[in-house]
């Protein structure tokens, strides 16, 4: 059974997480779909003081002698879910970055070729433009 002070601390921590996440979504620094799991985590922490007696009973009923172990197990599962969501996002983003990089390289090449032919066509009324696209960030 948890003492009153730790209960209060866990409650405050949960509240902080909730407020932080809500504020970040409000300021559009965190997208809703990534906020959901964090909100659930915050909610779980906030309500933990209420749930802890139930958790103890649940732990004993499924044969876990040491109830905090169940709490830690749930926490680990929750964190794994969060990380898994990030891995999925990274995979998708890498694919998008690949397509963008390839498209950008091919377009730069095409634009440079256009500029070359335009310059060679000898538009004598205008000065030839020298914009080496794709070379700019190579020093």
């Amino acid at each position: 059974m948890m003492q009153p002070l730790p209960r209060l601390l866990v409650f405050m921590l949960g509240l902080t997480v909730l407020l932080l996440v809500i504020n970040l979504v409000r300021k559009r620094q965190l997208q809703e779909r990534y906020a959901i799991l964090w909100l659930l985590a915050g909610l779980a922490l906030t309500l933990a003081p209420v749930f802890i007696p139930w958790l103890d009973r649940l732990a004993f009923s499924i044969g876990i002698e040491y109830p905090p172990a169940l709490l830690l197990l749930l926490a680990v599962v929750g964190l794994l879910l969060l990380i898994f969501q990030l891995s999925l996002t990274i995979s998708r983003n890498e694919d998008r970055i690949k397509v963008l990089t390839q498209e950008l390289a091919l377009l730069s090449h095409a634009v440079a070729a256009c500029q070359r032919t335009a310059n060679e066509a000898g538009d004598s009324t205008r000065p030839a433009q020298e914009v080496p696209i794709g070379e700019q960030d190579h020093d």
Partner: peptide
């Protein structure tokens, strides 16, 4: 890129390193 261009090859420069397959696929798109 500079060496390849000086030898008369067409050069497509990927702005970031994609890895071997990503580079080859760029060649296929080309």
């Amino acid at each position: 890129a500079a060496v390849a261009a000086s030898l008369g090859a067409e050069v497509v420069t990927l702005p970031a390193n994609l890895g071997y397959g990503g580079a080859v696929q760029t060649g296929f798109r080309y």
